[in-house]
Design a protein around this nucleic acid. Structure first.
Lengths: 159, 159
DNA sequence: TAACAATCCATTGACGCCCATAAAATTCCA
DNA sequence: TGGAATTTTATGGGCGTCAATGGATTGTTA
């Protein structure tokens, strides 16, 4: 199965458009995205980071599956629906492979004028994230430090 | 299958008209809504929230199915029938894609002059809800907290 | 005819779609 | 293997269409 991997930083233009990395687009297409008549890509605020989680049909079906397991008209289901469906935005990819990130999502990810007009795409396997470049640098550095610690604990003489 | 997703906030004008988000309208049309001679959209007070539940034919059938699953003449069925059918309003969409929310429904959802002349449409899969913007913000926060508890079900090593 | 409702029309701004350009990668061939 | 030709990407901009909104006009009913 194809996975989203690697990290790419692209520009946002004056109209708020960003090119999705070609490698990611290719995966979305194989994942059920159809150039025409397609719903688009699913995108929602990441729960534990100032970033956006994005994916294709596979991700949408995951959400459906979770909700379908709860009884209709239960309060629990309504609440989950709000958080899962309600926060999801379906973004369409234009003919040139670009999307426009809506205001609500940009706010969550800190993609304001201060982000230097750039966004970072981060592959995470079956989904990918969109970050403000600086915020992601910090996150990445923290992750590296953590790995270093683990190495020490593991007594890693080889890496 | 088409689902209602995402959250949109629109204005109510002086005459009480609100535009239904175009994306939602498109789903209603595919769900059996016909521009002319159509019954309209089904709308009723949400059972457990200060909001309105709305949907098309698919929602109506779902309610039918739910009631049919309960034993005839059971107290439970009677109560649910009243709760679900009793307050249902069939709203028509005008030529410009707008509806007028009747007084009784506006009261339940707290869509008064205090709501800033705005309403929030929240996609919930096979139905959508109409909220007063501020009330929905609170609900959204609660819902997100709840999802945190369910994250493991989403298979998320992150997010 | 007053009050209200439904339909129609007009404006504005956002968005989708198309094309142009430049840089980068890939292919192809000597 | 080197380099030229071609294709793919990323990005910028123009323009037409449509959605959202406000206002006017017509119709209906008490």
């Amino acid at each position: 199965m194809d996975r989203f991997v690697s990290t790419v930083t692209n520009k946002i233009d004056a109209k708020g458009r960003v090119s999705i990395p070609a490698a990611f687009r290719a995966i979305l297409e194989r994942d059920g995205y159809r150039a025409s008549g397609s719903p688009g890509i699913y995108c929602y605020p990441s729960l534990d980071a100032p970033a956006l989680d994005c994916g294709g049909e596979r991700l949408a079906q995951k959400i459906d599956g979770l909700l379908a397991s709860l009884p209709d008209y239960s309060e629990e289901r309504d609440e989950l629906s709000v958080a899962l469906y309600g926060d999801v935005q379906v973004l369409t990819i234009d003919g040139d492979g670009r999307i426009v990130i809506p205001e609500a999502l940009r706010t969550h990810a800190g993609l304001g004028d201060d982000s230097g007009g750039q966004v970072t795409f981060v592959g995470l396997g079956d989904k990918f994230q969109i970050w403000a470049p600086l915020a992601f640098d910090a996150r990445r550095k923290a992750a590296r430090d953590k790995v270093q610690e683990h190495r020490k604990l593991l007594g890693g003489s080889s890496g």
